[in-house]
Design a binder for these strands. Structure first.
Length: 296
DNA sequence: GCGACAG
DNA sequence: ATCTTGTCGC
């Protein structure tokens, strides 16, 4: 049965695979086996509901970028009950990041359509686990799902702050939540968790990229055309300033429903004047901004 | 035992 | 992630 009510907040982005959700309270072994199941269910090939080349930060309309936030101007512009099967308008891209308050996490989501912010939501949730390398999705996954549940729109792409396939069991935060939501997702990390870069990553020019290949620390996943040489992501130099502080590259990896090559291409298209892609940068700023309202 | 590790 | 002053440069 369809909803009787218009479209209440939280009606979109509901988990498609709640059975694979990062439940807390599992033993370490149970968390790792769940990650193996997530990796099996993950798709590291392009299966996108939009054309990647349509993703950009440009705003067709007035050529004017409105990054100040706030919701849609004149209220409901469209009936928006489902995906946009309509126009050539850019896909909806959601940037997700968190800030912390004691034992609580503030998860922020900023959704962009081209260079415009169309929605911003956040949620404050209790944290159940400490940070453990390799098990990040079990600490931050639940809180992030809480925030995504507040969304009125249905993003075409989710951009996470952390790794996707660049993970010991090929199931990092971006992969885990991408699979649970069954949505295309990308992981953008500021440092490398595992895997080996093809080339030295130091002091590279903007736009430069090199494959990150699976090594001994990356477990093979049945069901995927894997091999010890499999490209699980890319080191990507998004920015490089004309002066000293050599900027480190970003480590981009596919979360779900896209290839490593498409993931970097999209991050490149979403890069503005800063190191982090715009959706992530805005979510990061919003997470800090909203945090102030909860500090004791 | 040693090394190594997203946020 | 978070704790934090000043400092260099467009």
């Amino acid at each position: 049965m369809a909803r009787a009510v218009p479209a209440a907040a939280g009606s979109e982005m509901r988990p498609a695979r709640p059975d694979l959700a990062p439940r807390p309270g599992l033993s370490r072994d149970e968390m790792e086996s769940l990650q193996r199941r997530v990796a099996e269910a993950a798709v590291f090939e392009d299966d996108l509901p939009f054309d990647p080349t349509r993703v950009s930060l440009d705003t067709p309309e007035t050529g004017n970028q409105t990054l100040t936030g706030a919701v849609a101007p004149g209220g409901d512009t469209d009936t928006d009950g489902d995906a946009d099967t309509d126009t050539n308008s850019p896909p909806l891209v959601a940037g997700i990041d968190q800030s912390f308050l004691d034992d609580r996490a503030l998860s922020a989501v900023v959704v962009l359509r081209g260079g415009e912010v169309v929605e911003r939501v956040h949620a404050v949730s209790d944290l159940d686990l400490p940070y453990i390398p390799g098990l990040l999705s079990f600490r931050e996954g639940g809180p992030i799902l809480d925030a995504l549940a507040e969304l009125d729109c249905d993003p075409d792409l989710l951009v996470f702050d952390g790794s996707g396939r660049i993970h010991f069991r090929q199931a990092g935060l971006a992969t885990h939540l991408g699979v649970v939501c069954d949505a295309p997702s990308i992981g953008v990390a500021k440092s490398l968790l595992c895997g080996t870069p093809d080339e030295d990553v130091d002091g590279r020019p903007e736009g430069w990229r090199t494959p990150i290949r699976a090594d001994d620390s990356v477990d093979p996943v049945g069901g995927h055309p894997d091999g010890p040489e499999t490209t699980i992501g890319y080191a990507f130099q998004s920015r490089q300033y004309d002066s000293r502080p050599i900027v480190n590259p970003l480590y981009v990896s596919p979360g779900h429903r896209l290839s490593a090559a498409t993931a970097v291409d999209l991050v490149s298209r979403l890069s503005g004047s800063y190191k982090l892609p715009e959706p992530t940068r805005l979510a990061d700023a919003y997470a800090d901004e909203a945090k102030a309202q909860y500090e004791d």
